[in-house]
Design a protein around this nucleic acid. Structure first.
Length: 293
DNA sequence: CTCCAGGTTCCGG
DNA sequence: CCGGAACATGGA
C-alpha cells in the first residue's frame, strides 16, 4: 500500500460511477484513483474491491461524503417494480447519492442551468481557480470552492469572465443573500422538505429543479426528485407514453408518490441510464445543396 | 450551420 | 395555472 494511504471498507460502492454521474463536478482522475477536495480538505480516493484506499486522516470525511452509510440494498428494495426502473438499476450498481457541502453544491447548481455536464465542470473549476484557495496536494493543482463572502465581493462582471453568462448575476446575488444572512443555509437543514424547498427557492437563480438537487445532493433528503430535461424525457417517454398534453405539475405529483421514500435515488439512476443510452434520432437530412445550378 | 444542454424568470392568456 | 420567450456559451 502506498505511503500516506489507508484502507476503509466500502461494499456496494462504485467510486468512478458515482463521481461521473452528474452530482459533483470537480474531481480529477488520477489513474488508479481520484483526487479532489472535500470541503477544504484535499483527498485521494482509490477504488479497491469492496474497499477504498484513502488519504490517511480523511477516513471519516470520505465515509460521510460518499454516504457509505446509506443502506443501498434496502433503498433499492423500495423502488417501484417496472421495466424502466429495473434497467436503470442494472446500469447504476454501486452509485450513491453523496453528501456535498451545502454552499458548494448550491452555487454549482446555480451555474448549471442550460449547461452540459462538461461545461458545469469547466465553470466549477474556473471559479475555484479564480476565487478559491489553493489546497496543497502533490501532483495536482486543487482549489477549494470559494465561500459566499468571496463571491459576493466579486462583481458580476468578474464572474462573467469565468464564462458564466447570464448565470453570473444569479450566483452573485445568491452569494450576497447567503453572506448577508438573509438566507440561512444551516437553518434550512432543520426544516421539513417542503419548507426547505420553498426557502431555497427564495434565492435568485434557484427554482424547483436546482433546489431539489441541493436537497438531494447536500442536505441528504433522499426523497427530493429533481426534474430536468433528461428525467422529463424519461417520464413523458416511458411513464406517460402516448398521453397527450401532460402538464408539468402532473409529472411532479406522479414522481413524488410513485418512486417512494428514496425517490431521489431512483431519479439519479434513471437520469444516469437515460444519459448513457439516449441517442437522438437523426433528423432527416433535407436537401440543402441539391439546387445548386 | 443548427441544435441542445441536470433552468429560471418574466409576461400574456 | 400554463405555455412561450429571453437569457450566454460551447460541444456535437
Amino acid at each position: 500500500m502506498r505511503r500516506g494511504l489507508t484502507q476503509i471498507d466500502a461494499p456496494d460502492f462504485d467510486l468512478a460511477l458515482t463521481l461521473e454521474s452528474g452530482q459533483v463536478f470537480h474531481w480529477h482522475n488520477a489513474g488508479a484513483g481520484w483526487v479532489g477536495t472535500i470541503g477544504d480538505v484535499p483527498v485521494y480516493v482509490g477504488q479497491l474491491e469492496n474497499a477504498l484506499l484513502v488519504t490517511k486522516g480523511a477516513e471519516d470525511l470520505v465515509r460521510r461524503y460518499f454516504a457509505l452509510d446509506h443502506p443501498l440494498a434496502e433503498i433499492r428494495s423500495t423502488f417501484p417494480d417496472d421495466p424502466a426502473m429495473a434497467e436503470a438499476l442494472r446500469f447504476s450498481n454501486g452509485m450513491r447519492i453523496i453528501r456535498q457541502p451545502v454552499w458548494e453544491c448550491l452555487a454549482t447548481f446555480i451555474t448549471s442551468s442550460l449547461k452540459q455536464v462538461i461545461h458545469i465542470r469547466q465553470i466549477s473549476l474556473g471559479i475555484r481557480e479564480t476565487f478559491g484557495t489553493r489546497a496543497c496536494f502533490p501532483g495536482f493543482e486543487l482549489c477549494t470552492y470559494p465561500p459566499p463572502e468571496r463571491l459576493a465581493a466579486a462583481g458580476e462582471n468578474e464572474l462573467r469572465e469565468r464564462k458564466l453568462g447570464f448565470r453570473a448575476r444569479y450566483l452573485q446575488a445568491a452569494a450576497q443573500a447567503v453572506a448577508s444572512g438573509k438566507i440561512d443555509l444551516e437553518r434550512i437543514a432543520t426544516m421539513d422538505d417542503a419548507d426547505a424547498l420553498a426557502e431555497l427557492c427564495r434565492l435568485p437563480g434557484v427554482g424547483e429543479k436546482v433546489a431539489n438537487c441541493v436537497l438531494l445532493f447536500a442536505y441528504g433528503r433522499l426523497r427530493a426528485f429533481p426534474i430536468d430535461v433528461w428525467i422529463e424525457r424519461v417520464l413523458r417517454g416511458i411513464y406517460f407514453k402516448g398521453k397527450r398534453k401532460v402538464p408539468a405539475a402532473r409529472l411532479k405529483r406522479f414522481s413524488a408518490e410513485y418512486f417512494g421514500p428514496f425517490g431521489g435515488y431512483a431519479q439519479q439512476y434513471l437520469f444516469h441510464h437515460a444519459r448513457k443510452t439516449y441517442r437522438k434520432t437523426p433528423r432527416p437530412r433535407v436537401k440543402s445543396r441539391i439546387h445548386a445550378v
